[in-house]
Amino acid sequence: MVARDVIADLSQRIRTIERTGQRCATKSDLTANGLPGLERLLCEAGWPRGGLVEWLAEGRGTGSMCLALWASRAAWHDSLLVMIDSQRELHAPAAVPFAVDLSKTVFIRPERPPDALWSLEQALRTRGVGAVVCDVEQLSPQACRRLQLAAETGGGLGILLRPAKARGQPSFAEYRFLVQPLPPPDARRAGVAAVSRRWRVELLRGRKRFGGDSVIVELSDGPNGLSLAAELASATPAA
């Protein structure tokens, strides 16, 4: 009992130090994680308020965005969601099933990439914005640090969707995940009525945790509707 208190106290102090002394991470500094199974990759029970999370994926149509939206939907539950869409490709009706309330969502559609980054920083810096979703292709370490500081000021969650080639770049994000689509589990070819998708979500790096672990997440129509299943993948994923 005493040992647990000591550990809790120490981890609290570590968090305080890590957060540059401005704020300390308490329970209220977290928003719930909406993807059961993913908590094995997180060091706390949810997403940090005032932090960045990167979701990396190779190519289009991998499903990283719907995973990111579904996992972090608690972040904009009672506040504003900002979606930055410089490609003008986001299809708002399709975001509604992933817990996006269109009446509390602002779509920002800048024409130039620098404007997108500027909008991202402005939105992250604002209190009252629960989460900001943005595609980020290129990000210099300085810009990333600026974004992280902006998020700490505003207290929202920055969800950055990035290409897989960004995995080697330095980052100030709390977590960096790599999303890889997997083939259907029982190698069923054509012949499946319901749509189902599987991914391996790998933690590339975390601010307080080494990367390497991964989980398998499945999204499918179960007997009771949409269901999510997650299983622990082997610690060293096959390429």
Binding site: A32, M65, A94, A95, D101, L219, D221
Partner: peptide, 18 residues
Amino acid sequence: GLTPPRSPICWQARPLRL
């Protein structure tokens, strides 16, 4: 309290990027 609002379309019917 996080149940999403009832949506006019189901999740697999429309793509997030058009």
